[in-house]
Amino acid sequence: MTLAIETRQLRKEYRGRAVVESLDLEVGRGEVFGFLGPNGAGKSTTVKMLLGLVRPTSGEVRVLGGSVNEERVRRKLGFLPEQFRFHTWMSGEEFLTFHGRLAGLSARALRDRVPEALNLVGLGGRGRDELRSYSKGMLQRVGLAQAIIHTPELVFLDEPTSALDPLGRVEVRNIIHSLKDSGVTVFLNSHLLSEVEQTCDRVAFVNQGRVLRAGRMEELLGPPRSLDLRVDALKPELLSKLRKLGKVTASGEGRARLALTAGVDPASVAEVVVGSGARLQELTPHRPDLEDLFVELIELGGDR
């Protein structure tokens, strides 16, 4: 895997107190990577170190194969800060033109990119309005446009959907997917775990500046742990066979929840049902979601 981000024992202290203790992180190129952790876990400080906004106390950081202090690397970065503040006297177009020029775009490129970026974030037609007249959600959208106007290779999004309504969240999710499709690496910092679950290829849970667990979504969440099933008739012989696979809680009208014994293949449940002569009408697997894993990891204090 070619790495977009690599940190080794990254540490940041403020007045002797470690905010990030010793962070080892790898993010592959083209990945959508979720960076999760409770408030005060050191996520924003980590993002700032990766962007060169904060100087690490010790440790190593490599971004896009080089140092974040190199101009050629910075040219390829995009960033939407968590609490994005603007020069609100600018219009949307002026704002994007300024940030595009800072990122090194030519006047000719800007003529195309500014309306494209505004359209992409759903602000087409509002580019001439001053930012002070934008709603919170619109500001977040124009902030996102600022992060991608120069077609970066690595984009950091810190809580990109926090001010958006459900429609806006879907749009941002689509933008992230389209970034991924065009080979852009996305580093997503979000508290909305359902968003992360739908968007990210890999995630890392951090607390106190250490990675508690990291991996692909399916590896972290594991196989389904329980199943909801519905059959035409839940006869005693079927119930007895199901109990060999796990704990059964019947709820009447042919419905039951089966908490699988460790190591049992969920597919074998369908075989047992069909083999017993019952008609299988519904079989819904339930795997733990990121929220369950998040709570578990934080409550365990990171012990595996």
Binding site: K48, G52, R74, L77, F79, H99, G143
Partner: peptide, 9 residues
Amino acid sequence: TIQSIAYKP
């Protein structure tokens, strides 16, 4: 406001 400027080249 400086954050969105200072990460640029």
